[in-house]
Amino acid sequence: MIEVKNLNKSFGDAHVLKGISTSFENGKTSLVIGQSGSGKTVFLKCLLGLFYPEEGTISYDGKIYSELNSDEKRDLRSEMGMVFQGSALFDSMTILENVMFPLRMFTKQNKSEMEDRADFVLKRVNLADAHYKMPSEASGGMQKRVAIARAIVNKPKYLFCDEPNSGLDPKTAIVIDNLIQEITEEYNITTVINSHDMNSVMEIGEKIVFLKDGLKAWEGSKETIFKTDNKVVTDFVYSSELFKKVRQMYLEERQ
């Protein structure tokens, strides 16, 4: 479980995160949504320890990040998996080597053990026959799946995804969403996803945190987002006619 308390982060005069407090539970897929520039990426990078907040604390299963020494921080980071927006695969390595990379860095497994584990997770993300391709030879959807495989290969406790669906067609996006949710439940991981994609919100948002101008404007789930009257949320989530109709139908069904 990740608990965030009163998180504040500035860059010069720009106060990007303004006292955000929330929590993300184990085995659940949580989404952080908001407009571009609302502070989602900065928030995620604070969770990852890439940015240091000026104020506030982030605790991972009770361990407060800012109070850990460098070795403890390193150990904690080895328990994190991250899926970057652009996949961030190492382009000098094959897909198999990319997936094996965290194992090579953090475990004492021999080569065949690492290959077995990498093979297992590649099959789990439905990439059974792409082991020896280079990342540049893989499609966007395949690259995302490799990134997910790399993120989960070392059995992380925390999985972070920055816009995992960006640049993907709607069908592949749903496959990726479902894959992340299945993996989260299967391995009881705490998953936090940054997203703009309203399909993802409706599909897998077991917890949704809505950021606006660096503030937490709303918090709920995929069920409560239909019922909320919060104008800031409804203006953002139901900005398209399609989602307006979906919401209307949902509310009519409930009545």
Partner: peptide, 15 residues
């Protein structure tokens, strides 16, 4: 190029 494509961020995230 590794910086632009977030590969360095990926290394740092892994500790």
């Amino acid at each position: 190029t590794m910086r632009v494509t977030e590969q360095i961020d990926a290394l740092e995230v892994m500790g």
